[in-house]
């Protein structure tokens, strides 16, 4: 019996979840990360609470929470939406810290020069600080993407037919547990390892200063 075609189909769904969740995560990373460094407490405090809640609990628990608890308070989500939103928000908490620390790693003199040239805070962030921080963000964002791809395996537990789910159902129908899980690992590896090599390549290039 040929296991590969269903597993490839599963991988395709895993990649879809990764794509959706990374889009959510990227957007929220910037929102929360920028809020963390604003001079305004009313933005900093909620952002800090958001980040700590999602970083302080487990991704799997968050997925279950979105899927089983949110409907009880009137938020009905399909498994797919629940999975994508939970993973996206979970990873945005880590992403927010990447955004924050990359921005704070930009030399303080850049803020001071912007101020001396009468830039507003927003203009300094947009024109001066973020363009320099982006280089620093790329490698850690790449690492998070690899972690996210692996974490999508967790949404199999709320019934999304991605790679891990496909593997488990093949095991159930054929009993070939060791072989199937080896194959599943091989497929994950084939997707994630090149990505991490790419990240390492960028990491080496990016660490060079301006």
């Amino acid at each position: 019996m040929n296991f590969l075609p269903p597993l490839i189909q599963g991988l395709y769904n895993s990649l879809l979840v990764t794509l959706g969740a990374s889009a959510v995560a990227l957007a929220l990373s910037f929102v929360a990360g920028l809020a963390l460094i604003t001079p305004w407490r009313v933005l900093r405090v909620p952002a800090r609470i958001y980040v700590e809640i999602f970083r302080g609990t487990s991704a799997l628990v968050q997925i279950f929470y979105f899927f089983y608890v949110l409907p009880l308070i009137g938020i009905e989500l399909t498994p797919m939406t629940a999975g994508i939103m939970a993973l996206g928000m979970c990873f945005s908490a880590y992403g927010a810290e990447v955004v924050r620390s990359s921005i704070q790693a930009v030399d303080k003199g850049q803020w001071e020069a912007s101020h001396a040239l009468s830039f507003s805070w927003g203009m300094a962030v947009r024109r001066v600080i973020i363009p320099q921080a982006l280089r620093r963000m790329l490698p850690p964002f790449g690492n998070l993407l690899v972690e996210l791809l692996k974490a999508t395996s967790l949404v199999s537990l709320i019934g999304i037919t991605e790679l891990a789910f496909t593997g488990s159902s093949l095991v159930r129908s054929t009993g070939e547990n060791v072989l199937v899980y080896l194959l599943v690992m091989a497929v994950y590896f084939a997707a994630a390892y090149p990505l991490s090599l790419l990240v390492r390549h960028f990491e080496r290039r990016m660490t060079k200063a301006w």
Binding site: V146, K150, A151, S153, L154, S156, A164, G167, S168, V171, N177, V178, Y181, L182, V184, M185, Y188, F189, A192, Y193, S196
Partner: peptide, 22 residues
């Protein structure tokens, strides 16, 4: 190291769970 870091813990646990009895 490369394999362990590029595959999900979930699958690794399933794998151990089934392979150890073998």
């Amino acid at each position: 190291i490369a394999v362990v870091r590029s595959t999900p813990l979930l699958i690794q646990l399933f794998f151990l769970f089934y392979i150890l009895p073998e």
